[in-house]
Simulated assay, not measured.
Amino acid sequence: METQRNTQSETKKSPQTQPHQENLKGTFAAVIIVGLIILLSWFGIFGLFLERA
């Protein structure tokens, strides 16, 4: 009985399709902008630290 179920379930499987590719250019740009803000802030604060030392 189980072998019949296995063969029936194997034949009913849908064909494998490639996943949908999303456009991530906007996400990449946002990450770069946030990274630049963090780096500029860090260097600005580091400059203040060196100036006061």
Rank of each mutant, 00 (worst) to 15 (best):
M1T: 01
M1C: 03
E2Q: 15
E2G: 07
E2C: 04
E2L: 08
T3V: 02
Q4F: 09
R5W: 01
R5S: 04
R5Q: 03
N6H: 01
N6Q: 08
N6I: 05
T7I: 12
T7A: 00
T7L: 05
Q8V: 03
Q8E: 12
Q8G: 03
S9D: 08
S9Q: 04
S9A: 13
E10C: 10
E10T: 12
E10P: 04
T11G: 08
T11Y: 14
T11I: 10
T11S: 09
T11N: 09
K12A: 09
K12C: 03
K13N: 12
S14I: 10
P15M: 14
P15N: 05
Q16Y: 02
Q16D: 11
Q16R: 07
Q16M: 09
Q16G: 03
Q16W: 01
T17G: 01
T17S: 11
T17Q: 07
T17P: 02
Q18W: 04
Q18V: 02
Q18C: 05
P19T: 08
P19Y: 08
H20D: 11
H20A: 11
H20S: 04
H20I: 07
Q21A: 11
Q21R: 14
Q21H: 01
E22A: 15
E22D: 07
N23G: 07
N23W: 00
L24P: 01
L24M: 12
L24G: 09
K25P: 01
K25W: 00
K25F: 00
G26L: 12
G26W: 14
T27R: 13
T27L: 13
F28P: 06
A29W: 11
A29M: 13
A30K: 14
A30W: 15
A30Y: 13
A30D: 14
V31Y: 06
V31T: 11
V31L: 14
V31P: 07
I32T: 09
I32R: 13
I32Q: 13
G35A: 08
G35I: 08
G35S: 15
L36D: 07
L36G: 07
L36N: 11
I37D: 02
I37P: 00
I37N: 06
I38G: 11
I38S: 00
L39V: 06
L39D: 03
L39C: 03
L39Q: 03
L39T: 05
L40C: 09
S41N: 10
S41P: 04
S41K: 02
W42S: 05
W42K: 00
W42H: 02
W42Y: 10
W42D: 06
W42A: 10
F43A: 09
F43Y: 06
F43R: 11
G44F: 01
G44H: 02
G44A: 15
I45L: 13
I45W: 14
I45Y: 04
F46L: 14
F46H: 14
G47A: 15
G47C: 10
L48Y: 01
L48E: 03
L50M: 10
L50C: 05
E51H: 09
E51K: 10
E51A: 06
E51Y: 10
E51G: 13
R52G: 02
R52P: 00
R52A: 04
R52Q: 02
A53Y: 04
A53C: 05
A53K: 08
A53F: 07
A53W: 01
